[in-house]
Simulated scan of single mutants.
Amino acid sequence: MDFDLTGVQAAWREKGAALGRDVAPDPAAASVVQGAARAGLLDPAVDLLALVVAVEALAQHSPAAAVTLALHAGTSLGLARLREGSGEAGLARFAPLFRGEAVAAVGLSSDDIPREAEGRLSGRASWAAPLTDRGIVVVSPKGDAGRTAYAVALEMPGVGVERIATAALPGLVCGHVTFAGVRGEPIGATVPIMIRIRILMAAAGLGMGKRALREALATAKAAHAAAAGEQTVQGLLADAATELDAAMLMTWKAAAADPLSLSDASLAKLMATAAAQRAVERATQVVGVDSFQRGHIIERLAQDVRALELFAGRTEALRAAVAEEILPRRA
């Protein structure tokens, strides 16, 4: 396996970093998606690994923007994949998502899901994001014929949004979406969407973890012999770097697989989530009491990294997906 990025992939990584430098400190989802479209980061034919390195680079500057792009792009790419056999008309239906004219949100929790009957949705989808005034939401309701993804425009009559004040990722709007007999557009299986979201959320986690490691390294170097040469600090930094690199390789493997695998995507998100959380914890130890100041980058990362655990599959669901695919093969 070639571990070097191609010229195109390296260019996408720089585009992601540039977008991170350009976005507002607490960027609204619409501005992130529009900026990504202008930068050429929204392409239905994208090499997924190129998008992974772009999201990772973006997360090192703006975790909220990276999570927004991961959710929007993962949902949009999944929709495009499901519409591949429906001709130009089918693909054109979601073209505004790739032009940055609309934002794709997705239901992130299975705790509360709507009911589908004869193509109409009723009930509530809990924890959908990123929500905007104009856009679509993709949900997977309960139905007599099994679970199928449905796309619904947020401005449709009968759709309500209850926004939630969150403790992290400022600018990313989360909320509960209610449906009162709303006719949805059936898309197909949820798996192609979830695979891409999990891989891209893993990339966002890698970026957060690497930013935490960078801050810890800067603190250690500034302290010179008092910290940089101290064995405990060296161990903390080495452990964080090792775990982040291992998670990065798993994420790259998942993104480069053909065909994409829910097991690989779930494993990548598991590893990246754990590595990012531990990198932030170790950075807190290295930076020390300064990280307790409100607004300090480590304080913000400690809040933002929690979204990795909560969004697009909790740890138990990820482990179940890995076990379902891997264990039968090895039996």
Rank of each mutant, 00 (worst) to 15 (best):
1 M>Q: 10
5 L>M: 06
11 A>I: 07
12 W>G: 01
22 D>C: 04
22 D>K: 13
23 V>N: 10
26 D>M: 05
31 S>K: 09
36 A>M: 06
37 A>R: 07
38 R>I: 00
54 A>V: 07
56 E>F: 01
57 A>R: 13
60 Q>N: 08
62 S>L: 03
63 P>N: 10
65 A>P: 01
67 V>N: 01
67 V>W: 10
74 G>C: 01
75 T>H: 01
83 R>E: 13
85 G>R: 07
87 G>A: 03
88 E>Y: 07
89 A>W: 07
90 G>Y: 08
94 F>P: 00
94 F>I: 14
96 P>A: 02
97 L>N: 02
98 F>H: 04
98 F>S: 01
108 L>R: 11
114 P>E: 11
124 R>D: 08
146 G>R: 10
147 R>K: 12
147 R>W: 13
148 T>K: 08
154 L>N: 04
156 M>T: 11
173 V>W: 08
174 C>L: 14
176 H>C: 03
179 F>R: 12
179 F>K: 10
183 R>K: 15
184 G>K: 12
185 E>Y: 08
186 P>M: 08
200 L>N: 03
203 A>E: 07
204 A>N: 07
210 K>V: 04
222 A>S: 14
223 A>M: 11
230 E>W: 12
230 E>V: 04
238 A>M: 13
242 T>D: 14
243 E>M: 12
250 M>P: 01
258 D>R: 14
263 S>Q: 13
266 S>P: 03
268 A>K: 06
268 A>V: 05
272 A>W: 10
274 A>Q: 14
276 A>D: 03
281 E>N: 13
283 A>D: 08
293 Q>G: 05
300 R>L: 01
306 R>M: 11
308 L>E: 06
309 E>R: 14
316 E>H: 07
316 E>D: 11
323 A>F: 03
324 E>P: 01
330 R>V: 13
